[in-house]
Each structure stands twice: as structure tokens, then as C-alpha cells.
């Protein structure tokens, strides 16, 4: 609380020397705490989605993938490799084929 008062005090002092009319209306900067949605909805598809559910949801929610357009198999293979090689997703090599298969089935161009 004491810190807050110091910040507000410093802010008020700064305002005295401000020349811009609209800046003077700026309220004090206050500490902020929020809650963010969990985004823990699973990929649909039962057991065919096991690999993608087990490997991909730690870093991002499923909706990002489900909002993608249909794309060629090579694009989905490259995307999974990028997650592993660039973004360091700890995906078990034995799950890669199942993840790609799910993406091709749900978002493939056939």
C-alpha cells in the first residue's frame, strides 16, 4: 500500500509539469491481476486424437489447430517438425505419425 501511494504521488508530481491537456486526465497506473481462460478443451475424435491430445495441448489450445484450413500432408508434416525442432515440443518420435495422421484426416486436402 505504501508503494502504491509513492507511485501515485510520483504520478501526481509528474502531472504538475505536464503540458499536454489529455495526459493530465490519465489515471494512476495500478497493479493488475487477471484470470485467463484455461483453454483445456480436447481434440475430438476419441482414440485417434490420443497422440495429439497427449503431445500438443501443453503449449497451445486445440482451437488453433481446429481453425486451420485443409492443407497438404507435407504441410502438416513440416508443421509438426517445426514444433519439435524450432519450438522444442517434447513430442515422442513414435507419436509423430499418429499426430500427422490426425491432422491429415481432419485438416487434409484429399
Amino acid at each position: 500500500m505504501r508503494g502504491t501511494i509513492i507511485v501515485i504521488g510520483a504520478f501526481a508530481a509528474a502531472l504538475l509539469f505536464s503540458t499536454s491537456a489529455w495526459v493530465q486526465q490519465l489515471p494512476a497506473i495500478k497493479s493488475t491481476t487477471v484470470d485467463l481462460p484455461a483453454g483445456d478443451r480436447m481434440f475430438p475424435g476419441g482414440s485417434s486424437a490420443d497422440a495429439i491430445n497427449n503431445n500438443c495441448l501443453a503449449c497451445h489450445s486445440a482451437d488453433m489447430v481446429l481453425n486451420q484450413p485443409a492443407l497438404p500432408r507435407a504441410t502438416w508434416e513440416a508443421e509438426v517438425r517445426k514444433m519439435i525442432n524450432v519450438y522444442r515440443a517434447p513430442i515422442d518420435e513414435s507419436d509423430v505419425a499418429s499426430i500427422v495422421a490426425y491432422l491429415v484426416k481432419t485438416k487434409g486436402e484429399d
Binding site: 485467463l36 481462460p37 484455461a38 483453454g39 478443451r41 497451445h60 489450445s61 482451437d63 488453433m64 481453425n67
Partner: peptide, 9 residues
Amino acid sequence: ILQRTRPPL
């Protein structure tokens, strides 16, 4: 408009 929940888009 929700493009992605986590991280938010």
C-alpha cells in the same frame, strides 16, 4: 472473435 484460447489470439 476467438482465434485461439491459449496463448490468446
